[in-house]
Nucleic acid binder design. Structure first.
Lengths: 194, 194
DNA sequence: TTATGAATATGATGCAGATCATAAATCGGG
DNA sequence: CCCGATTTATGATCTGCATCATATTCATAA
């Protein structure tokens, strides 16, 4: 995996504690961040303090490239969910990585494409669909990542922050979806069937 | 420019008439589309027929790569705005392009990053901000592309379809923004100052 | 010019979801 | 097993924007 190759090359790891802010909107990008372990969330926060989850990144993934690549200040906060060990790769080294490692370049292209896909999907939802539809869409998007019969490890608040809704609306919406048989609940948790 | 190189290599051009649908949601991607001339829009359409503009593509640009790269069916329609001459590059040739032309690969990465940036910005707007704020944001996003003193060539309906609002709301919103001095109008058109 | 369709405009009404308040259930750590 | 904190739950009210209806203005071709 990419992280291994980086440590082999002598890149060092930095530890960030829970709730640490790795960068915030307006800052000029200096690094691309590769996660060795832990988890971070990328969120925008409106004037009245409401978070919107732009993405969640885990071990083996990287974040912060788009801003660095097009040389524009960050739009979002990146905040640590679980203590994380992170490799900061500066602009020069990152460009070298792209130019000298064709398979990294290809995987970056695919990663960007996947994120773009997700954002296009959510944009359509936020622009045109109402609460229940939005909820069903992210739930179905998240479910394939959990084992059959296992629950979705996500709070109603997190669903709210991914869909631009409010907790109360998510709580009511999830209940309705379950009543309609479109999802199945078990002890409050959303369960993957089949 | 990339298009020139493609025609040099013997790729041929196909003409699409206004309002032609190049692809639609659910279709399996087979090509990446390079625009030689003309203009297309990429839109998602909700059950009740409301369009959301995911992007607009003009001469020299290409579209359709993300779906092809991650091998998932299209999410959106791509519809011709103005008669267009388009080069269809199939999967194999497109991958060859990425692998054999390092500068194309880099420009693709930057293009994807720019689109991602735009979508992140709009997601925050649609999730958290109300009509006036959304309008000010796209207007300020679009303005740098027009000459100083020139008007924005965009209808209220198009602004509506980019922001997830309704025409009436856009009309009232634009008027308010101008009253507040946040934008300037001239004969109904939004003007770039300085 | 005038006709005709598109774009802009404006008022009235309805409704989904935000907001506010308060409570019950569940969870994680000592 | 208990306790404080987090998460889920539920009702009441408020509000921004959608929706509907109907003009008016603006372009463009005949």
């Amino acid at each position: 995996m990419e992280i291994q190759r980086l440590t082999d090359k002598g890149f060092t790891t930095k530890t960030f504690q829970k709730d640490a802010i790795i960068y915030e909107p307006g800052m000029q990008p200096r690094y691309v961040y590769f996660i060795q372990s832990g988890e971070v969330r990328m969120v925008t926060i409106s004037d009245d303090g409401k978070e919107f989850i732009q993405g969640v990144f885990k071990a083996g993934q990287y974040f912060g490239e788009p801003a660095l690549l097009i040389d524009k200040p960050y739009l979002a906060f990146t905040i640590v969910n679980k203590v994380s060990r992170i490799i900061q790769v500066n602009r020069q080294d990152f460009f070298a990585l792209i130019e000298n490692e064709p398979d990294f370049s290809m995987s970056l292209i695919k990663t960007l494409s996947r994120r773009l896909f997700y954002k296009s999907m959510m944009l359509e939802e936020l622009a045109n669909e109402k609460a229940e539809h939005r909820l069903l869409t992210i739930i179905n998007y998240l479910l394939p990542d959990v084992a059959v019969g296992a629950p979705l490890k996500v709070t109603r608040q997190e669903l709210a922050d991914m869909t631009g809704l409010r907790v109360e609306t998510v709580i009511r919406g999830v209940k309705l979806l379950s009543k309609k048989g479109l999802i199945s609940l078990s002890g409050g948790k959303i369960i993957r069937l089949e």
